[in-house]
């Protein structure tokens, strides 16, 4: 658990972070978003003390990080940056082994861990273990960057616009892999981006920052349906609002569980905008749904996409945002 209590950081007369308080729960995927200079990267870099806080307290699992040695604190966290920063004179294996090496893991354990991580990030260990960073593409380099950050099994992963410099296809596949890794490991992730689509896609919760202040911290659904300020509404954008709205819920959320229908089924965790696309492509208004084990889980109707039926779902509707 990461806990910010009225944390302030000034650079000269400029207040980069202004009395920010928030909590990131254990295992949560928290996205920090905001325009340039909003203080989002500064907040991230205060978590591993790359930037010291001027006022307030930052606690991890209740321990004030100011009381820890910075190096020991950092070795417990993964850190990924946009420009990757792989050591150009070290092989992929040695890059990934950096923190386990610092922590004094036995050689065999490090070796196994490198293999495991390369496979996790879809890099063939036999081919890439001994490669040098300059022999890799930009996307492969960032895969190694993520593997390096995960190497010592950190409970917290800090990511500063890690995919911003990549082409859209590579970015999308790394986003998918990161989501899967997060689900599997339960690592707490703090992820800085300026791309709202990425934030909506990855975050359990999204913290919007502007001028060093925290404007809103909410679930993707609430960010879409209940923006706290015009800035949040602008960050989301009006274009394809409906599709973004669909994208934050899954087929399983809205399927009619008692019904059944024939056809190629959709997985329950498919986002709703994919389901809509699927209906258009197949020319049908009803799709069968299956759960994670492949058992029938009901039917999704086209009308369900506009009128949410599942209990507990808060619906702001497009009108809440499309008021122009």
């Amino acid at each position: 658990m990461i806990d910010f209590e009225r944390v302030t950081k000034r650079f000269g007369s400029w207040t980069a972070v202004d009395a920010v308080s928030f909590t990131v729960a254990e295992g949560e995927f928290r996205v920090l978003i905001g325009p340039s200079g909003s203080g989002k990267s500064t907040v991230l870099r205060m978590i591993n003390r790359l930037i010291p806080a001027d006022e307030g307290a930052i606690r991890i699992d209740g321990v004030d990080i100011a009381s820890l040695k910075p190096e020991e604190l950092r070795r417990r966290m993964g850190y990924v940056i946009q420009s990757v920063g792989l050591f150009p004179h070290w092989t992929v294996e040695r890059n990934i082994a950096t923190v386990p090496g610092l922590l004094g893991w036995p050689r065999a354990r490090i070796r196994d861990r490198v293999t495991e991580l390369l496979e996790l990030l879809n890099l063939d260990p036999r081919r890439y273990r001994g490669a040098y960073p300059h022999q890799l593409s930009g996307g492969q380099q960032q895969r190694v960057g993520v593997a390096r950050a995960l190497a010592a099994e950190p409970r917290i992963l800090l990511m500063d616009e890690p995919f911003s410099a990549l082409d859209p296809i590579t970015r999308a596949s790394l986003q998918t892999e990161l989501s899967a890794i997060h689900r599997r490991t339960g690592t707490t992730v703090v992820f800085v981006t300026h791309d709202m689509d990425e934030a909506l896609r990855l975050g359990d919760s999204i913290a919007v920052m502007d001028h060093g202040r925290l404007i809103q911290c909410a679930t993707p659904l609430d960010i879409l349906t209940r923006p706290a300020s015009p800035l949040v509404r602008d960050l989301v954008g009006r274009e394809e609002w409906g599709l973004k709205r669909l994208a934050v819920e899954t087929v399983g959320d809205r399927a009619r569980r008692q019904e059944s229908v024939t056809g190629e089924p959709l997985a329950a965790e498919t986002p709703l905008h994919r389901a809509l696309s699927e209906m258009v492509a197949r020319g049908t208004e009803r799709l069968p749904v299956v759960d994670g084990d492949g058992r029938p889980a009901g039917v999704l109707h086209l009308s369900d996409l506009v009128r949410p039926t599942s209990a507990g779902t808060v619906s702001g509707g497009p009108a809440a945002s499309g008021t122009a």
Partner: peptide, 17 residues
């Protein structure tokens, strides 16, 4: 390169390392 130093610092290498 500055990012290489930044990454090294972020991973917990000491200034001497």
């Amino acid at each position: 390169p500055a990012p290489v130093r930044e990454a090294a610092r972020g991973m917990g290498l000491t200034p001497g390392q």
